[in-house]
Simulated assay, not measured.
Amino acid sequence: MNAQELSWIALWGAAALYAIAMVASSIHLSRVADAKASAKGKVAAAVGAPHAGDAAASPPTASAGRQPAVASKATGIARSTTLVGALLNGIGVVTRGIEAGHAPWSTMYEYTITGTFVAVVVFLIVQSRRDVSYLAPGVTGFATIALGIGLTTLYQASTGLQPALQSFWLVIHVSIAIIATGVFIVAAVATVLQLMRDYRDEGPVASGGPIRRWRNANARLLGRWKWLEAVPSPPTLEALSFRLHAVGFVLWTFTVMAGAVWAEHAWGRYWGWDPKEVWSFIIWVVYAAYLHARTTQGWAGRRSAVIALIGFVTLIMNFTVVNLYFQGMHTYA
């Protein structure tokens, strides 16, 4: 078995395990939601008991807002498959690098398999510090789709590096961009959950124009998704999202700066209005606007979350639309 075959087997195995982890973590969330609903019912029954003054009838305030702990086979399956999937994903990236003879970050396929690995690792690091299992379905689901598209559509046989890429800046510039992308993926999942929980908690409002009717339809739909009960409150999700976005923004800032230095080294200019350069700067501007809006009175919450998702859309467009349909100095990416 050569490096190419080992890479393919490892990456397909990772995609399969991520899919299993997505299903198992979704089952876990549904059980947490059921346990939470049951706990609320018991608290309500205790409050409405005939002997309200009895200490046994009053709800325990210390645990009223606490997330119920639910241990099940689904929990263990989700965690183990995510961990083993990340291990196989890493093996697939390393063996691709061995096959190519250089850092595996020179094509869309290589960027995809590495970015997916980083996103899952970022999730596992955060999970090791606090319980963020509610992010697992989104992160592993994104990883499954990304690896599937990479292996079936974006795959390219390994070739030698173009002259412009034969530089140590490939390791510095592109690796930081990939890490930033992985952080932004996890942050985007938290932001989507924040908006979903926010609209669900608000519920339908007084009818009005088409935008309000659209919001009410979404609120009614989200109201049927009981698993959202297992998701923390919007402020908690917003705080997590903000921290992740702040880290990603710092990394992306370094990405843009390192790219300018590399461009001067390779092409003799720091900035040339290349489509990839322009879109990288647009991403930086949108995320800068999000961080500013998040810390500005009146813009925190739903408004800033929408800006964060716009930033993620520009990030995806930079990787897909710009790479595939715009001609420039970065067409090899």
Score class of each variant (00 low, 15 high):
Met1Ala: 10
Glu5Tyr: 00
Leu6His: 01
Ser7Cys: 05
Trp12Leu: 15
Ala14Met: 03
Leu17Tyr: 03
Ile27Ala: 06
His28Tyr: 09
Arg31Pro: 04
Arg31Met: 12
Lys42Met: 14
Val43Leu: 15
Val43Asn: 11
Val43Trp: 07
Val43Ala: 14
Gly48Leu: 14
Gly53Val: 09
Asp54Arg: 07
Ala55Asn: 07
Ala56Ile: 13
Thr61Pro: 10
Ala62Trp: 04
Ser63Thr: 15
Ala64Leu: 15
Pro68Ala: 06
Val84Cys: 07
Gly90Ala: 09
Ile91Lys: 02
Val93Ser: 04
Val94Trp: 12
Thr95Ala: 11
Arg96Lys: 05
Gly97Thr: 12
Ile98Met: 14
Ala100Ser: 15
Pro104Gly: 01
Tyr109Ala: 11
Tyr111Phe: 11
Thr112Cys: 09
Ile113Thr: 01
Ile113Asp: 00
Thr114Ile: 00
Gly115Asp: 02
Thr116Val: 12
Ser128Cys: 11
Val132Trp: 02
Gly138Gln: 06
Val139Phe: 01
Gly141His: 07
Thr144Arg: 07
Ala146Ile: 06
Gly148Met: 06
Tyr155Ala: 05
Tyr155Met: 07
Ser158Met: 07
Ser158Tyr: 00
Ser158Ile: 01
Gly160Asp: 04
Gln162Thr: 07
Ala164Cys: 03
Ser167Gln: 03
Phe168Gly: 10
Val171Met: 11
Val183Cys: 10
Ile185Asp: 11
Ala188Pro: 04
Gln194Asn: 08
Leu195Arg: 06
Gly203Pro: 09
Leu222Gly: 03
Trp227Pro: 12
Pro234Met: 08
Thr236Glu: 15
Ala239Met: 05
Phe242Pro: 08
Phe242Tyr: 15
Leu244Glu: 02
Leu244Asp: 01
Val247Cys: 09
Phe249Leu: 10
Gly259Cys: 09
Ala263Ile: 12
Ala263Lys: 08
Ala266Leu: 14
Trp267Met: 13
Trp273Met: 08
Glu277Gln: 13
Ser280Lys: 08
Ile283Pro: 00
Val286Glu: 04
Tyr287Gly: 01
Ala289Asp: 01
Leu291Lys: 07
Ala293Cys: 10
Arg294Leu: 08
Thr296Leu: 12
Arg303Ala: 12
Ser304Tyr: 05
Val306Asn: 07
Val306Tyr: 10
Val306Lys: 11
Ala308Asp: 01
Gly311Lys: 09
Phe312Cys: 06
Val313Lys: 04
Thr314Tyr: 04
Leu315Ala: 08
Phe319Asp: 05
Thr320Ser: 14
Gln327Ile: 13
Met329Arg: 13
Met329Cys: 04
